[in-house]
Amino acid sequence: MAIVLDGIVFGLQLSLLAVGLTLIYGLGGVLNLAHGQLVVVAGIAGAVTISAGAAIPVAVVLAVAAAAALAWLLDATLLRPVYRLTGERRVLLSLLVTLGVAFLLDGILITTHPFTALNLSVPGPAIDILGVRMRSGSVVASIIAVTALAAVLAFLRLSRFGRAVRSVIQDEEGAALCGVNLPLTRTVVFVLSGVMAGLFAITQGLISSVGATSGLDFTILALIVTVVGGLGRVSGALVAGLVLGIVHAVSSFYIGAFVTFVILLGVAMLTILIRPTGIFGGGAR
């Protein structure tokens, strides 16, 4: 039971990480292979702020802001030529460009901050949930993740702008004909995905830590969840995140961490080979 609960916490985190990636892909056909680096940038920004003596809330805000700012910068500069292409060409160039960004940031961060890592310990005793003791850090992380996911869902389902975002995902040209400002929508969603990545960094800092070398790992995790949930499908990413989080926890406990990673990768590969639209995609987006 404790393992499943751990799995759910990790699953919520995975959803948080994957929703941003899947939204960007759905919206602009851009697969952001530098997504994990957004997390790392947030983590390092937070850690640096804390070591400079700032209060934790300030560091948290700055961390999230750093990821959001980087996301905005990417969208406003390097991805502009990508958006000018259409279809497969856009996807391909986006992959290559963001891969370049990932390595660029990795190289810089690993060199300049080799030993910096974000660690946010929450004081206070473990909390009993359903008879299982949970570390208070995990509880806070879950609350953050649930709140953020609920907010994103509400935004997409209920707000006028959220409806516009969904319309762009379904038909870019149709949305433009309805008067939706595509570049602005993309920018807003890109920044949103940066915020989500930043929040993920906070939750990760609460549970373990975020260091300079983990960027690619985070990207891959997000990618696995996104693929299993169906590329571009928000609800799919939510469900897939939870399921894979539980699988991850159970499998790590009984089999071991490295096999677990291989299993997750295998699930993603099989998903593509068997049902490229995703396992948990369903009809609703």
Partner: peptide, 15 residues
């Protein structure tokens, strides 16, 4: 390790 950054930049610039 900064070489990684250069590779990344090269990839970007080239593509």
């Amino acid at each position: 390790q900064l070489r990684l950054a250069v590779y990344g930049a090269l990839l970007l610039a080239l593509f």
